[in-house]
Design a protein around this nucleic acid. Structure first.
Length: 258
DNA sequence: CCCGATCACGCGATATGTCT
DNA sequence: AGACATATCGCGTGATCGGG
């Protein structure tokens, strides 16, 4: 998840960047008086915009309006230390999607940002299912027909982008910018390798293939037909019948190979 | 011929084991 | 218990093959 923090002061922005970074988010910061709307439009795409301030001053409301004017289609959250019901309403009317009260646990803030992003993309809960595969955003977990599939953080991030935007093309540029930020990221082949690894793990777990390759553009998650799900389940069941009921110890395997 | 898929490998970080 | 060595894991990249 890549977010833009619009901060009232440099230290506050830096603190949020570090804290959110520890939660696995990619964070860019911009000062409130540096035209955050234009910056968001230029350096995006972002998954959310977080405006941090002590209170809902006219300057902050102006910042919210500047971001809203860009029609970026991403949730805008305001984190303030104090607000009156009137100023809160003004912030929401100006284009904020939520007004949160500081201090707030960073984990709670991340959960709220994820929830808003999810809703903006049309998902009702933290569990998103495609075919017989379910992505659990709350626990950073993946299951196939209820079975856990062990995946790494990066693999989860790649899948999360596909799940959240199911049915839509996710370009390689989108992947790399959201996973690594605006700075020089790794080669786009790195993404291909993650897709390959994820596909293999999913297939081994009995998942119906749902990642479609858009040649020269990117990848897309699509609901597989029921027949594909049934076939994947059958392959998995067959594989389990063939599998030996007891693991061979390395020493025994070497002895047998010799 | 270009681009995606896959394998192999190196590097760095972290976990685990062993010795003092 | 602390220091050090070793193993394991995750990530990124190079090389190669095959398909569009």
């Amino acid at each position: 998840m890549r977010i833009l923090v619009v901060a009232s002061t440099l230290p506050a922005g830096q603190r949020l960047k570090v804290a959110l970074g520890h939660e696995g988010l990619m964070v860019d910061t911009v000062a409130l008086d540096e035209d955050p709307g234009a910056v968001a439009a230029q350096t995006g795409p972002y998954d959310a915009i977080l405006i941090e301030a002590a209170g809902l001053t006219p300057g902050v409301i102006g910042g919210i309006r500047a971001v809203a004017r860009q029609r970026l289609g991403v949730p805008t959250v305001v984190l303030v230390a104090a607000a009156t019901p009137e100023s809160e309403a003004e912030a929401l009317d100006a284009g904020a999607d939520d007004v949160l009260m500081a201090p707030m646990a960073i984990t709670t803030l991340v959960v709220r940002l994820r929830a808003l992003q999810r809703r903006m993309l049309g998902h009702l809960s933290a569990w998103i299912t495609i075919g017989n595969t379910t992505l659990d955003q709350a626990n950073l977990a993946l299951t196939v027909d209820g079975r856990d599939v062990r995946i790494t953080r990066r693999e989860f991030d790649v899948l999360e982008m596909l799940f959240l935007r199911r049915g839509s093309l996710v370009t390689k540029a989108d992947f790399l910018q959201r996973l690594y930020g605006s700075d020089e990221g790794p080669d786009s082949r790195t993404l291909d390798v993650f897709i390959c690894k994820v596909r293999r793990k999913l297939a081994a777990a009995g998942a119906a293939e749902f990642i479609r390759t858009a040649w020269g553009r990117g990848y897309m998650a699509e609901e597989p037909p029921p027949a594909a799900i049934a076939a994947a389940r059958a392959r998995f069941a067959e594989g389990h019948l063939r599998r030996p009921n007891r693991l061979t110890s390395p020493a025994k395997a070497w002895a047998e190979a010799a």
